[in-house]
Simulated scan of single mutants.
Amino acid sequence: MRKRIYANDAERVAAHRARHGFVQLTVDIPVQTMLAFEEYLKFKDLSKRAVITKLLETQLLRKR
């Protein structure tokens, strides 16, 4: 059996985020918006991370 590198899943996730330069973003949105977003993700077979990152980069943070 492999030796555990991390004491728990929280440490494992924190290490993954640190290695890849990710931060956690939490927002409150209406239920209907979330349901529509989840349907979109299923239809396009994309991750939440990919869609939100692309939206932020192309819509809010683009150079003008």
Rank of each mutant, 00 (worst) to 15 (best):
Y40M: 14
E39D: 15
L35T: 14
A18E: 08
V23I: 08
R4G: 00
A36C: 10
K42A: 13
A50K: 11
T58A: 07
L46H: 11
S47M: 08
S47F: 07
T26Q: 11
L46F: 13
V51H: 05
L41W: 00
H20G: 10
R62F: 13
L46E: 15
Q59L: 09
L35F: 05
H16A: 11
M1D: 03
V13D: 07
Y40I: 02
K54R: 15
R2S: 11
H16P: 00
G21K: 07
F22K: 10
L56Q: 02
S47W: 04
L60W: 09
G21V: 00
A36N: 13
R12L: 10
K63L: 05
L60S: 05
L55Y: 12
L61A: 12
A50L: 07
G21E: 02
A36T: 14
D9F: 12
Y6M: 03
R19D: 08
V31E: 08
L41E: 01
V13Q: 13
I52M: 15
L41M: 05
R49A: 13
K44S: 11
V51A: 05
E38K: 11
P30L: 07
L60R: 06
A10E: 14
S47G: 12
R4F: 01
A15P: 02
K42T: 13
Q32G: 09
V31Y: 05
V23H: 05
G21W: 10
K48L: 10
R64T: 04
A7Q: 01
K48Q: 10
L61C: 10
N8T: 01
D45G: 11
K54Q: 15
V27F: 07
Q24L: 10
G21F: 03
T53W: 08
L60V: 13
L46V: 07
K48D: 02
A10F: 05
N8R: 03
K44D: 03
R64G: 05
T33H: 04
I52H: 09
L56W: 09
D9I: 15
R62I: 12
I5M: 04
F43N: 04
Y6Q: 04
R19K: 15
R49H: 15
A15R: 06
R64A: 06
S47I: 05
F43R: 15
L25G: 01
D45S: 14
Q32I: 09
T26H: 05
K48E: 09
R49D: 11
R49M: 08
K54M: 12
E39R: 15
P30F: 02
L25A: 08
Q32R: 13
M34Y: 11
R49W: 02
D45E: 13
I5H: 02
L56I: 14
R49I: 05
K54L: 12
A7T: 08
D9C: 09
L60A: 14
P30W: 01
A7R: 04
I29E: 03
A50H: 13
R64E: 08
R4T: 03
D28L: 06
K54G: 06
D28M: 07
K42R: 15
V27N: 03
E38A: 08
F37P: 01
K48T: 10
V13H: 11
K3R: 12
K3C: 03
M1K: 07
S47Q: 11
A7F: 01
A18T: 02
R19T: 07
V23S: 09
A15G: 02
V51S: 04
A14K: 13
I29G: 00
R12H: 04
F43D: 09
V13S: 07
Q59H: 14
T33Q: 06
T53F: 10
